[in-house]
Amino acid sequence: MDKLQAIVDQYQKVPGGLIEAFHAVQDEYAYIPEEALRRLAKAFEVPLARAYGIASFYSYLSLKPRGQYIIRICKSAPCHVKGAAEVVKTLEEELAIRMGETTPDQLFTLEFTECVGVCAETPVITINGEPYGDLTSAKVKEILAQYRQPQ
């Protein structure tokens, strides 16, 4: 894991940089593999139990493998009243997985999120951090089609 070493080197000296390093690991692997957590804990001289406590505190950090595209559906009140449930339904049907799951081809993972701050365009999803708003079933299908195309 050379990429991991690069991350360690970049953040090791940053005071309190462990969470930044977690972000970097996640950008690379879509989640935080056990091996990476152990390596980072050692590099930051944070005991493993504490490092795990930190990683498992934040909902943006995942300790289980995820797909290439992480689709997060906002379920906070403003999105909820504007039809987040409909978006969930469409996504689950289109991808044939349930919330929290990853497609067998490892392409998509479905997760809930709380408000992502795009509330003038409710309901909202983000795909790898990129927000998509004013969603309808049709629009969701269109977006998925874009991501499904081999790039």
Binding site: I19, E20, F22, H23, F57, Y58, S59, Y60, L61, E114
Partner: peptide
């Protein structure tokens, strides 16, 4: 700049 990680 530091990035939060999903915790209200």
């Amino acid at each position: 700049v530091r990035m939060g990680a999903g915790a209200y």
